[in-house]
Design a protein around this nucleic acid. Structure first.
Lengths: 187, 187
DNA sequence: GTGGGTTCTTGTCATTTGGCAAGTGTCGCG
DNA sequence: CGCGACACTTGCCAAATGACAAGAACCCAC
């Protein structure tokens, strides 16, 4: 379990066994994991990169998330609320992970008390990620946000397009281009 | 329960009874609910307003959250991870709610299966709030963020200071002042 | 009242960012 | 090879925001 989800609180052999007994789901680069209008699944991503995006009121695409395994990939509102999602999620690389439905998840919660804490820890981690990213927008400049992004996940830079990174950062691709030039000059 | 937490998924008489059997905790304006360095509690806020804040690397205060009842008030990392919090939370008005410890919460989870879904729904709601606020920073101008803030909770404006709202929005108080002037002129 | 502290606004100027258009580079396809 | 599509960069100017300092408004204790 530590190997799979290093930052998780729970390390339990039974959970590890249970997961490893499940069938791994493999996805190839470019696959649409979640389509706008459908109800989200719960994908326990082990390896690979994904990108989540929506559209703003002008119809322009907005990247809302990057996912790097190991991490839970889902639209929480859609998955738990059984509502159509407003997000799209697409793979940036080949991916490997486990696919969970709400039924399976609830069954696991019911049959395996230790799994409940595991599920809660995952939700808490998603919450922490969202809050950290929100904070980055509040008190970091675009340049600092970019630096932080690169430093925390250099691998992402190899798989995501700059315009998507720019849109995720909340700046135009023009601005990001300038920021990258400044950074290159400084070194 | 609908009365208490209108946006919650779960509406269950047993939970309602259980909550109403608990002692209400009353706080007065200006009280520090969570102090940096301590482990967070879980405050189920029914009525009132609160503000969460930290400090950036320069020591400047940054407002990270506004809470309007009914809502769960906690630092999730600190509460579930039993770690010292980096946040401070202070009441902006007199407040009314229930105070839960992790022990009590876990006991409720164990004894009352329907409470588990209730707890999960609260976590999901916090996640949705954080993601929405992050999205607002990505694709809304400062002026639009301010408009949205006013429209979604006019009451907040009566209790929070403008400089705190500015810091929450990620702009200087100078900028917010100008934005408010523009908006006033437009009408 | 008066004084002092705090909050908010305003002015001036520098910096950052956006919008737009043009230019460069890369890639795949016929 | 040449073409077009796409991603990225760059230049130019306008708009938004920040930094700093001064002033106005408000509150509150004495």
């Amino acid at each position: 379990m530590n190997r799979l989800l290093p930052q998780m609180v729970v390390t339990d052999d039974r959970i590890m066994c249970m997961l490893e007994a499940m069938d791994e789901v493999h996805l190839t680069k470019g696959e649409l994991v979640l389509k706008q209008g459908r109800v989200s699944n719960y994908y326990l991503l082990l390896d690979g990169y994904m990108r989540g995006y929506t559209h703003d009121e002008n119809g322009a695409e907005v990247t809302t998330n990057f996912f790097a395994g190991p991490r839970a990939v889902l639209d929480a509102t859609s998955f738990f609320g059984r509502q159509p999602s407003r997000e799209n999620i697409v793979t940036l690389t080949d991916c490997r992970g486990y696919l969970l439905t709400l039924d399976v998840l609830n069954k696991l919660f019911h049959e395996m008390p230790e799994f409940r804490e595991f599920g809660r820890a995952i939700l808490v981690r998603e919450l922490v990620i969202a809050q950290e990213q929100k904070l980055a927008h509040i008190n970091l400049s675009a340049e600092d946000r970019y630096r932080q992004l690169v430093e925390r996940d250099a691998g992402l830079m190899q798989h995501a397009q700059l315009r998507h990174i720019a849109s995720f950062m909340g700046v135009t691709d023009t601005s990001l281009s300038r920021i990258r030039r400044e950074l290159a000059n400084k070194k």
